[in-house]
Design a protein around this nucleic acid. Structure first.
Length: 762
DNA sequence: TGATGCTAACTTTTT
DNA sequence: GTTAGCATCA
């Protein structure tokens, strides 16, 4: 027997040894799913399957990287390098880059993230003269995204009576029009959004038989991780890709399906056996991760859900400590309790910071924990939230790089055409846009084509020339050198360097970090025999599809982790705090009225519990700040679903008065006083503290004078500041700046004469 | 033209 | 309590 097969249990072994034909592995939490997947790949290769013929799809880049590494480790060589392992989005993006021209896209197509997509939608809503308060870009984006994930194109969207009824009911009948324009505009910009990467992949396989044959033939063995989180588009693509060999192996756990809001449907996993009649189903039911206490609590919670594949998760691990359930008075107390507990645990059990994770339902909850951890000097790492690549200065920089690769991309051209300022203002941009629409061509064509006149100027020519010179360097310079030149020649880096404010310094450092990441990308040595794509295009594609959870190497950082439960899927920690267990927060208000939604929240809680190996804390607060005012919530209904015998409620959290009631007892008899409507004291204090000097009432005949004749020493009247005397004059003829002494009430002010309304007194 | 300050909206979850 | 978007002012 091969070495890598050692240590597998009976079911795991069966899953690994199954070679041909459809296979579904139902893998409970902590049942060694990744181990089975990687060993299976190693075994396939060991049996003579060419790695080139294996495709493995995951949901995060991190999972993909880990899988690749573990396969290599199992095989003990680098045979794995030809494996096609990646996320759905990155694998399809790579394929589409090669086939883009079939679909009419440039091969350097830009990938729009959610923010880019929303801003395109916003522009369209504006162009259609619709109210963006009603046609909210985020709402429209979600509608379009849901449609694409169900393979519904604009025409179908328009014809679908159910969809049309829904849009009519929400009083947004024009979404179909917006969807259509959105697709047109993205196409014209040479851009695909996240959902297009799936949809266009499906189109490619459906409409181009040669492409279908090519990829069907190549991917003889397909493995899919987290199958419960796939949506219809992903399902359809897999079905097409696997149709020839039907060597499809899916791994999933219906109990951990937590992405239905993104179009994922558990249906895919439930109907696998209907799709493939000869499918073999193997259940992995032994949990190697958690203590008996934790596992039984989790089992009991998930048992309250109706729809599921029957399975009984068990463990031979120790019983372990009871789950600590703690109530605190406020969210700040909750933060303090968690930080205190971490300190205490570390003293007692010699645990490292990275052994702890704090899990919450929404990103907004992180604040109180960050504060308390900082106060205790406990290093922490926030996973998720606003990503590095969403920061303005980074998006600006990246916009340049994207435009250089794909100048069709109007959104990004507009973003940078006057940043740093080069005298191309709003009026000019509007005029160009108008002209482009008249000529039915792109924005870039309009400013770059010498045959089109009337809109170009010295400023636009300069911009075009600069971009073109960068473009011609694409093949000659590596990604880093080119990016560095861009920062230098555009003045982008200097602009940030010159800003010495705290934020300015941070922005400068962020940009330096971006450059470092590009440098690292270019300098990572190729593995033996493998030639990695080090181009700028490859870099951009990679980072756009990067998730926060993917920021690797941070793995080793010894810090407490803070993240949403969604971000924690697939991870495990010795000590887990699940916080904010309150009604309206978890389960979220949005899910209270629909059974299916509520069941998804419960699965989410199940995921949270099963992250813990040794110890689990669950906390909730009597009252917490939301929207800046205090609200009261009942303890989460899910708490009652944990068997009391596994719970220790004797711990009293910081700020909680008296002992905490037993689970299920005495909920809801808390203070009833509402602070909701109380104006914040700080605002009130601010108002009282600094009374503004009374404004000057202008003379009845006040009329602003021509400023050209003003000189030092003149007496002037300002509409607001009253009478004053000009002390100095500086600046050029067109932009004079005067220092004027307005006396004790207002002091000396610097006033730009072009804009100020001043009257000459004498 | 660019910086500042105010209000309104915001909170699910993410590739 | 935070941020984006705008109105206002210099």
């Amino acid at each position: 027997m091969q070495k890598y097969l050692e240590g597998l249990n009976e079911q795991q072994l069966a899953a690994v040894l199954h070679i041909d034909g459809p296979l579904m592995i139902v893998a409970g939490a902590g049942s060694g799913k990744t181990k089975v997947l990687t060993t299976r790949i190693a075994h396939l290769i060991g049996q003579g399957v060419d790695p080139f013929n294996i495709l493995a799809l995951t949901f995060t880049n991190k999972a993909a990287a880990e899988m690749k590494e573990r396969v290599e480790h199992a095989l003990g060589n680098t045979e794995a390098r030809n494996l096609y392992i990646g996320t759905f989005h990155s694998v399809f993006a790579r394929i589409l880059r090669g086939e883009a021209t079939k679909l009419g896209y440039p091969s350097n197509f830009t990938i729009y993230d959610t923010d880019d997509a929303k801003s395109v939608i916003k522009q369209i809503v504006k162009d259609m003269n619709l109210d963006d308060k009603h046609y909210k870009p985020a709402f429209i984006y979600n509608r379009i995204s849901a449609a694409k994930n169900s393979l519904i194109d604009p025409a179908t969207y328009r014809q679908d009576s159910y969809i049309q009824q829904e849009d009519a009911r929400s009083n947004r009948p024009l979404i179909a029009d917006i969807y259509e324009s959105y697709q047109k505009r993205c196409f014209r910009n040479g851009a695909m959004d996240f959902d297009d990467l799936l949809f266009k992949m499906f189109i490619l396989l459906s409409n181009f038989p040669d492409a279908l044959a090519k990829y069907q033939g190549r991917f003889k063995y397909i493995l899919i991780d987290e199958y419960q989180d796939t949506n219809l588009a992903q399902y359809a693509i897999i079905k097409l890709l696997g149709a020839r060999y039907e060597n499809i192996c899916v791994v999933g756990d219906d109990a951990q399906s937590i992405y239905s809001f993104r179009g994922a449907t558990v249906q895919n996993i439930l109907q696998f056996q209907d799709d493939y009649e000869d499918a073999v189903v193997i259940k992995l039911e032994q949990n190697y991760r958690s203590t008996q206490t934790i596992l039984q609590a989790a089992n009991n919670v998930i048992g309250n859900n109706r729809n599921q594949i029957p399975k009984q998760l068990w463990t031979s691990n120790m019983e372990g400590e009871k789950i600590l359930l703690v109530r605190t008075m406020t969210d700040n107390d909750e933060g303090k309790f968690v930080a205190d507990s971490i300190k205490e645990q570390q003293m007692r059990n010699h645990l490292a910071n990275k052994d702890f994770v704090i899990l919450y339902r929404t990103n907004a909850q992180s604040r109180s924990f960050e504060e308390s951890l900082r106060r205790h000097n406990i290093p922490y790492k926030l996973v998720g939230g606003t990503s590095f690549y969403q920061r303005k200065e980074i998006k600006d920089y990246l916009a340049y790089l994207r435009v250089i690769l794909n100048p069709q991309d109007e959104e990004n051209v507009k973003r940078i055409i006057n940043y740093p300022a080069r005298g191309i203002g709003k009026t000019t941009i509007d005029r160009i846009t108008l002209r482009a629409n008249e000529l039915d061509t792109t924005f870039w064509e309009t400013i770059s084509n010498p045959d089109i006149d009337g809109v170009r100027s010295g400023h636009t020519d300069e911009f075009v020339n600069m971009i073109n010179s960068f473009r011609s360097a694409i093949g000659k310079m590596n990604a880093y050198d080119l990016a560095f030149q861009v920062g230098k020649r555009t003045g982008l880096v200097k602009e940030l360097y010159d800003d010495k404010s705290v934020e300015g310094v941070a922005r400068y450092e962020n940009v330096q970090e971006l450059l470092n990441s590009i440098k690292e990308f270019t300098e990572t040595p190729d593995e033996e025999g493998e030639l990695l794509d080090k181009s700028l295009g490859s870099y951009l594609q990679q980072i756009t599809l990067l998730t926060d959870a993917d920021q690797e190497k941070s793995d080793d950082v010894n810090a407490v982790r803070l993240m949403t439960i969604h971000a924690a899927k697939g991870l495990e920690f010795p000590c887990v705090f699940v916080v904010g267990m309150e009604e309206n927060l978890f389960p979220s208000t949005m899910s209270l009225y629909d059974r299916a939604d509520l069941e998804e929240e419960r699965r989410l809680f199940y995921v949270a519990i099963t992250r813990a190996k040794e110890r689990l804390w669950i906390t909730y607060a009597n009252s917490r700040y939301r929207f800046g005012n205090l609200v009261q919530n009942e303890p989460s209904r899910f708490l009652k679903e944990i068997p009391p015998l596994h719970v220790d409620t004797t711990y009293t959290g910081v700020g909680a008065r008296g002992s905490v009631g037993a689970v299920g007892a005495n909920f809801g008899s808390q203070m009833n006083q509402s602070f909701d409507k109380m104006p914040s004291l700080k605002k009130l204090a601010d108002k009282l503290a600094s009374p503004k000097p009374a404004d000057h009432t202008p003379s009845a005949d006040f009329a602003a004078d021509d400023v050209s004749g003003m000189e030092v020493g003149m007496q002037v009247e300002h509409q607001k500041f009253g009478f004053g005397k000009i002390l100095t004059l500086e600046g050029g003829a067109n932009n004079k700046i005067a220092s004027i002494d307005f006396g004790s009430a207002h002091g000396t002010k610097k006033i730009m004469l072009n804009f100020a309304k001043l009257r000459i007194v004498k």
